[in-house]
């Protein structure tokens, strides 16, 4: 319209340029993010993998040599690691199960309209906004008989024989971080499941009610099947996430007493942060990564099997 001549010759001369520009356009939008991810996550990841085979100690200037599988041999004989592995199972299993069960109940409760639902929803989801270190400290204080009410209440109810700090009791200590984790993590499951619940078309329930299905039958034959995919993916991702989630443990017990709450992730952090043994920490991290990948694969395979069965 304004410069037909220029445009015409441009179009004739540069279709290749135009094609290149078109192909490059999405990369222009994605490039900053990709650069950042590669530089700050992928490169350190690969570097970390290489550390697993090297002797890297931050305070030892003579370290850095390639030592092959030495770390893994040490690891195979490391009792603390096996204890941490067992603790990780316990920590992850109990946390995920309780978060999911309580989160599902909460989501079902909130799915029903009632006066003040918006406010109730905001209040029960609030723990999720609490910084994890603060959640950890907060619960550690609640369990502390000096200032916290919980030991006294539990003693009064006969759960504890005396108002002691369960975080100092080797047999009970793990419950401390688990309870804090459940408190902090219920909202996540509830939010996810509530959104999935609200995505179920209402007329399906109406049709089922007209067909004569009671509330329990409607839950079993409509709600659960509709939620199943969300439940599966959420539990998978959450399991991996919680297995890696060391903040609460580091804040509340630092792995103690007597390593009874040490999980693999916090053990890695302890090796790197307190002993500054980066090589050994990376070796443990690599083992954890392999285990988590194996777990994810297993879930995917089982899911595939179940789908094929249908």
């Amino acid at each position: 319209m304004s410069h037909p001549e220029a445009v015409r010759s441009g179009a004739a001369r540069k279709p290749a340029m135009r094609r290149f520009a078109d192909a490059a356009e999405p990369w222009f939008y994605a490039a900053p993010v990709l650069t950042l991810i590669v530089a700050v996550m992928l490169v350190p990841l690969l570097l970390g993998l290489s550390y697993a085979f090297r002797d890297i100690q931050l305070l030892n200037p003579f370290s850095g040599a390639f030592i092959g599988l030495e770390h893994f041999k040490t690891l195979a004989r490391d009792d603390a690691f096996y204890r941490a592995l067992k603790n990780t199972l316990w920590w992850t299993g109990a946390s995920v199960f309780l978060q999911f069960a309580l989160g599902l109940v909460l989501a079902l409760l909130l799915d029903k309209p009632f006066p003040g639902r918006g406010l109730a929803q905001a209040l029960v989801f609030l723990p999720w906004a609490v910084p994890t270190f603060l959640a950890g400290l907060n619960w550690a204080w609640l369990f502390n008989p000096v200032i916290g009410p919980l030991p006294h209440w539990m003693a009064a109810l006969g759960i504890l024989s005396a108002p002691d700090n369960i975080l100092a009791d080797p047999h009970l200590a793990m419950w401390g971080p688990i309870i804090a984790n459940v408190w902090w993590g219920i909202p996540f499951f509830a939010i996810t499941l509530l959104a999935a619940l609200q995505a179920i078309p209402r007329d399906i329930y109406e049709a089922a009610a007209i067909d004569g299905a009671g509330p329990l039958q409607r839950f079993l034959s409509i709600t659960l099947p509709f939620l199943a995919p969300t439940i599966a993916i959420t539990i998978l991702l959450r399991t991996v996430w919680i297995a890696n989630f060391a903040d609460l443990i580091i804040v509340m017990t630092n792995g103690g007493p007597a390593d009874r709450t040490q999980i693999v992730a916090s053990y890695i952090f302890t090796q790197a942060f307190r002993r500054l043994d980066f090589g050994y920490a990376s070796a443990i991290a690599l083992v954890l990564l392999v285990l988590l990948l194996a777990y994810s694969m297993l879930i995917v395979v089982i899911r595939q099997r179940l789908i094929e069965k249908d």
């Binding site: 319209m1 037909p4 445009v7 015409r8 179009a11 004739a12 540069k14 279709p15 135009r18």
Partner: peptide
């Protein structure tokens, strides 16, 4: 469009 080849023109330039 109006005798001008527009295959490679962006929508904004086609008027």
């Amino acid at each position: 469009i109006d005798g001008q080849r527009v295959n490679d023109l962006k929508p904004k330039d086609r008027d």
